[in-house]
Simulated assay, not measured.
Amino acid sequence: MSLSRLIVGKSPTTEVQTGRRERRKEARPGQLLDAALDLFVEKGFAATRSEEVAARAGVSKGTLFLYFPTKEELFKAVVRENISGRFAEWNKEFDAFQGSSADMVRHCMRAWLERIALTRASGITKLMISEARNFPELAAFYQQEVIQPASALIRRILQRGVDSGEFRPLDIEISTYSLVAPMVFLIMMKHSLGACSPQDYVLDPERYVDVQVENLLSGLCARSTREAKR
């Protein structure tokens, strides 16, 4: 046994147990965020109770409040963990993109499909649409943390195409909605009619996005670019 163990009076077994407790404690925020995401998507923000989140994460309610003092703060942390905290990474990815602007649009929509639409995080968008009016503070937070940076990223892509001559002159501000609308439709279908009656609302996400992208590009691309592809 080392001198340090003799001085503090800890046995090797005690040190191992303490280490395990510390690792479990460090893991709790992630467990809580996972549990909260599941419950927010399943039940909505208003119907989700803090004690339910704690129970699903396997911790006490007191532990939950230690990390997230209010349900609102918990929700904000869920949004940052799954969506808004990734915009810096996504902007760097587009800074390094070497392809055409049309390929950038394709990559943007495909990346959104794989990283958001096909994941549990897609339910956050549906939740905000359905409950924003009742929780204006969370709506303002979502606007600042998700909608504004997402719109800015799409504007960058469209402006790149216009500046390079690949896209025709556009109203960039309004044209961003042309890309956003198909995304929102897919999410709403997935978490509403598609969830209740999937056999009646069969929609292949990959095929849907591919078709929407090509339709969009047919309208975005300058005439010379379209003709060059024929």
Rank of each mutant, 00 (worst) to 15 (best):
I83D: 00
I154Q: 07
H191C: 04
K43N: 10
A36L: 05
M104I: 03
S2E: 15
V184E: 11
V184A: 14
G165C: 10
V162C: 08
S197G: 01
R226S: 11
E166A: 08
L186M: 14
K25P: 02
G219F: 10
A150P: 00
K76G: 03
T63I: 07
P12D: 12
T176H: 04
G161A: 09
V162G: 07
V211M: 13
A140Y: 00
K92C: 06
I157M: 04
E73T: 12
R226Y: 09
E73N: 14
I116M: 06
F167I: 08
S11G: 10
E93S: 12
E89Q: 15
W90G: 03
A150R: 11
P136N: 07
Y67L: 04
P198N: 12
T225K: 14
S192E: 12
L158N: 02
P198T: 09
A88I: 04
S4W: 08
L3Y: 08
R226M: 15
D171T: 05
A222I: 07
K25F: 14
A47P: 00
R49V: 11
V213E: 01
T119L: 03
A55S: 11
S175T: 11
S192Y: 09
S175G: 02
A121Q: 00
Q212Y: 07
G62Y: 05
T14F: 11
A152D: 13
E81V: 01
V105P: 02
F167D: 04
Q212G: 08
R80I: 02
H191I: 06
H107K: 14
V162W: 05
S122A: 15
I154L: 09
P12E: 12
V79P: 02
M1W: 06
K76L: 01
N134C: 12
T125A: 11
R20K: 15
S175H: 00
V78I: 04
A36T: 06
N91W: 06
V146F: 04
P205R: 05
V184W: 06
E93A: 12
V184C: 07
N91K: 11
E22S: 14
I157K: 00
A77L: 02
I116Y: 04
G161V: 08
S100M: 10
K61N: 13
